[in-house]
Design a protein around this nucleic acid. Structure first.
Lengths: 179, 179
DNA sequence: TCGGAATGCTTGCGTTTTGCAAGCATTTGC
DNA sequence: GCAAATGCTTGCAAAACGCAAGCATTCCGA
């Protein structure tokens, strides 16, 4: 612990890294949303403002949670990548999603991913982390997961399913109520 | 989700509850430190200031993470209690402690609890949660844990052991080096 | 070749939150 | 009856936040 830290307690130090209103949401969008660029991250569900996003990205890079690189296909694009440090946050994300779903007024669409992550348990988390390592760190595909449907795609499909069901849902309810 | 929330995402809603620099540390001190009173919480490792502590306690009560009651033994004392909502944060605390210990510059004394929680795994967490329910919610002792050494006492003893070793430690190292 | 869209930010500026120090009315224990 | 302990509150300066707008560069399609 150096003088920059309030204490050497692991919980405190964790809070110092991502204990603010935005950092975890940025990481969430990168992990579960597959977002890699500034403008993508700007379109968050919660509407982060650009100066805050710029600031947080800088801090997360500084702390080793992300790396930043030029996009070879587009000279003015920067690509942000997760590191092992942030990838290892996946189980915490899963727990946090489960806890929030249990205690807070979540919406169906946005909690379906948490539900699936919870049901999948550590095995699913490991698969997901392995896929993230492949995507962000260039690690080779783990043999165990070769051919399996990617976790993010599975979660995304479930999300869209709920959205679709809801869109038709109110009509179906009306019909039911009228019959 | 009502208008007070940025979105219905479980991770976002969790962040809205304890995503700040202090709330989790207050809960940490209540859970692992057994603190129940304002003045106790004020003596945190990280030196929270009294206005912030007062504000956070009010918010945590408002959100259902804590309850506040008069201390029957002392007319001007308030007792803060955990609720099931905050007790169910124990696994997240454990993960957070493990993650912080892995990636951040923790001190030996303050990470020993995290280490033991990690090694103990879900079984230990369950015992701990059961004890907290007894202490804070007045639940009867779970039969499975009757007679077992309380988790908090075990963690505390380990902490003190590390402190003691460190105090005498530099001398011991000298002796070893000299022999 | 040229105009519109997209890129990752930055800049101002007003509002809110934080952090520090001090204080306060009451109650307790000796 | 007095010092210590109780849970806070108050003032005030500094930092962080949030919003809107803008900016230089690059890309892409016509």
């Amino acid at each position: 612990m150096d003088a920059n830290h309030r204490s050497g307690c692991p919980i405190n130090l964790s809070v110092e890294v991502f204990g603010d209103k935005w950092s975890l949401l940025i990481l969430r969008d990168m992990i579960f949303g597959g977002k890699r660029h500034f403008r993508e991250l700007l379109r968050s569900e919660e509407a982060i403002s650009s100066n805050i996003l710029a600031d947080r990205l800088r801090m997360l890079v500084e702390q080793g949670m992300l790396t930043k690189a030029d996009d070879p296909t587009h000279k003015q694009k920067a690509i942000y990548s997760l590191t092992e440090m942030s990838i290892s946050l996946v189980p915490i994300m899963a727990h946090l999603g489960a806890w929030g779903s249990r205690w807070l007024p979540v919406s169906d669409e946005l909690s379906i991913r948490a539900k699936l992550m919870d049901e999948g348990g550590p095995a699913l988390w490991e698969q997901f982390m392995s896929e993230l390592r492949e995507e962000h760190l260039g690690h080779p595909t783990a043999a165990a997961y070769a051919g399996a449907e990617p976790v993010r795609a599975k979660l995304q499909a479930a999300y869209e399913e709920v959205v679709k069901r809801k869109a038709g849902g109110s009509q179906a309810v009306d019909i039911d109520a009228a019959s």
